[in-house]
Each structure stands twice: as structure tokens, then as C-alpha cells.
Nucleic acid binder design. Structure first.
Lengths: 104, 104
DNA sequence: TCACCTTTTAACTTATTTGTTATATATTTA
DNA sequence: TAAATATATAACAAATAAGTTAAAAGGTGA
């Protein structure tokens, strides 16, 4: 399981959000990800491990290559839960539901 | 208008996410927010200005107090847009819609 | 005006993040 | 085995973030 803290920390970097956007179109090797950015390969490697620590991506070695791909569940789940906690409209819905249940 | 960059940066801090959760229940003065945390009041003041720079909260002086409150639109909008860009299910829906439009 | 209260800003310290280059580890292929 | 390729790790520098205390700014009311 992964903490929301790690997810939000991972999303704090523009580069990492872009990596997620690339991976959302399909898996890529570490090198293919790095090609798409203007920073060094080791820098991208570190970004990938931050994303992995947040459980936002998976990793699978394939010979000399390492493939990375999105794990959308955790991203969607964490953001959805946060919105529920914090966004007034969903808070209102929750309060409504509570009220209904109290009437039972 | 506020950049997604600033929003995600603002959300990267657990303390700031908790501040948003408090404010989602209603406006509070700077002091009332600070009371709820174990850090100094100036530290909270800085967190509030990060949230304000991200356009996630509003601020209104009332005499010697300063009230802060949530601006849910920008938070919801930024997160929804990001999910649309990155989450495979919504990406699939977008592709579908494109395909439909191509048939017109 | 003066004392007081609330909040922000300044100056500073420490920890973390992000990047770099050089090196190590895995793997394939000649 | 040796050379080449792909990726990760180590060691370091620079920038940023987050906290602290002290002081300033804004506002109230005797």
C-alpha cells in the first residue's frame, strides 16, 4: 500500500507529471522516457523511482531494458479520496447521506 | 489564473492539505488555523500564502483578523483536468469521442 | 497616544530536492 | 571473454522548502 503523502510528493514535480502523462499512453523503457526530456538519464531514473515508491507506476525488466507503465488505480484513488475529503460539494453529499441514514 | 504547477506544489505538503481540509468546513482566521497545528504561527502564515498563490484559498481582512476560506473551483478543476490527461479510462473515453467526431 | 492583539515579513538554519558527472551493475552480442 | 548497450547508484553541488525567533505592520480601544 502507498501513502497519500508519497503520491502528492510524487505529483509535485512537473517532470514527473509529464512522465505519468507519457506512460498513460502505454509502457515505455527507462531510456525512451529519458529521450523525451532535456535532463540526464540518471535524473529520469531517479524520477522513476520516486513514482515507483509512490506506487504510481510498475517496473519490469526485459533483458537489458526496463519497462515502466502506469498504475492508474492508486493515482485515481488517492485523488478521488482527497477531493471527497476536501471539496465542499462532495462534503455536502456526504452530510446528506449521513442525514438520510440517521432517518432510518 | 493559477498554474497547475503551483497547485501541485501547494498540495505537496501534508500540513497544507490539512489546512484545506479545515477550510473546507468553513472560513477560519489565520490564528484559528494556526491553533490546530503544532508549528509556529508564522509557519502557518507562510503555508497560507503558498495556498493563496496557488489560488486555492481566498483571504479577507476583517479588522485585526484575516479570514481565509476555500476556493474549491480551482482545486477541483486542476485535479479533474489532470486526471483526464493522465488516467487511462478517461483517455479511452476521449479517444472514443475523437473517433466519433471523425465519423461526422 | 499608548498598550495590546493579530498577522506578516525578515533573517537565519537545517533538511530536502534536483540536477550533474563518474562509476557500477546487468544484459546482449561479436 | 571482451565490447557495447541499458539502467541504476554514488558522490557531490546548487537551489528550494520549511521551520525558528525577532521585529514590523495593521488594527482596536482605553
Amino acid at each position: 500500500m502507498s501513502s497519500p503523502d508519497k503520491v502528492f510528493e510524487a505529483l509535485a514535480s512537473t517532470t514527473r507529471r509529464k512522465i505519468l502523462a507519457y506512460l498513460s499512453e502505454g509502457p515505455l523503457t527507462a531510456g525512451a522516457v529519458a529521450e523525451r526530456f532535456d535532463v540526464s538519464q540518471p535524473a529520469i531514473s531517479k524520477h522513476l523511482s520516486v513514482l515507483e515508491a509512490a506506487d504510481l507506476i510498475w517496473k519490469k525488466r526485459d533483458g537489458q531494458f526496463v519497462n515502466y507503465g502506469m498504475k492508474a488505480d492508486n493515482l485515481g484513488g488517492t485523488l478521488a479520496k482527497f477531493m471527497q475529503e476536501v471539496c465542499p460539494p462532495s462534503r455536502a453529499l456526504k452530510a446528506e447521506r449521513r442525514a438520510e441514514n440517521d432517518n432510518d
